[in-house]
């Protein structure tokens, strides 16, 4: 699945780069997004290599350009929605997971790959916060607030806050580059509280709806772990 997530992100970053250029964003941001698109293709190739080494099937690359937000938003809001959902939420949350994996990785090859991914993902996440820093003085960002819970929920997919199937919480998974589901839920919420929410507040985006969503997921987490 990771393979198609990476190829999908590549298509999205390429489109975001063009959108930012058209909106008059600084060249640094336009270039960062274009580079992120190329990075994601390389990441997909790493995923494919790892799958082949484990005699697993390599899934087909994502060929659809999929955006997160509603299509009927005004152009600047739509661009902002997609940058925020991709970089401020997904890539920022992914960084926290990669840091956890890096701490646990014992296999030398896996460690090298994870280091490369983390180096790239830092830039992919920064892109979103840099965009907000630029956009906050140009566009009205107040529309974002009510959408943040939807973005946060979409990033995890429908599965993360559902009961774990057998084996998904096995602590041994960490060494092979997979964060056990139980730990993934905690990392997700901790990162939301300590990085993502304060990040939005840093750039003047109201976070009450996102805080309420995080609170509800925290209760769900408690019930799952009873």
């Amino acid at each position: 699945m990771r393979h198609s997530v990476e190829t999908g992100a590549s298509l999205r970053f390429a489109a975001l780069s063009q959108g930012m250029r058209a909106a008059g964003a600084p060249a640094t941001l336009v270039d960062l997004a274009a580079r992120a698109s190329a990075d994601e293709i390389r990441h997909a190739a790493h995923c494919a290599d790892i799958l082949r080494a484990r005699q697993a099937e390599v899934p087909a690359a994502e060929t659809r350009l999929l955006f997160f937000g509603p299509r009927d938003l005004p152009p600047e809001q739509r661009l902002t929605y997609e940058v925020v959902a991709q970089s401020c939420i997904s890539e920022t949350e992914s960084m926290a997971t990669l840091v956890t994996l890096l701490d646990a990785a014992e296999d030398a090859h896996l460690r090298i790959v994870l280091q490369e991914l983390a180096r790239d993902e830092v830039q992919h996440a920064r892109l979103g916060w840099a965009y907000l820093s630029w956009a906050k003085n140009r566009f009205d960002l107040s529309f974002l607030s009510d959408f943040l819970p939807t973005m946060a929920s979409a990033a995890t997919g429908a599965d993360l806050f559902r009961p774990s199937p057998p084996g998904a919480d096995d602590a041994g998974l960490l060494r092979s580059g997979v964060v056990p589901k139980r730990q993934r839920r905690r990392i997700y919420l901790e990162t939301l509280h300590s990085v993502v929410i304060p990040g939005f507040e840093e750039y003047g985006v109201e976070t009450a709806p996102l805080r309420a969503w995080a609170e509800s997921q925290q209760k769900l987490l408690a019930s799952l772990e009873m």
Binding site: G69, P70, R71, Q86, S90, A154, T156, D159
Partner: peptide, 9 residues
């Protein structure tokens, strides 16, 4: 209505 992920690691 938009794409519903997942997109994180």
């Amino acid at each position: 209505t938009g794409y519903q992920g997942p997109t994180i690691w």
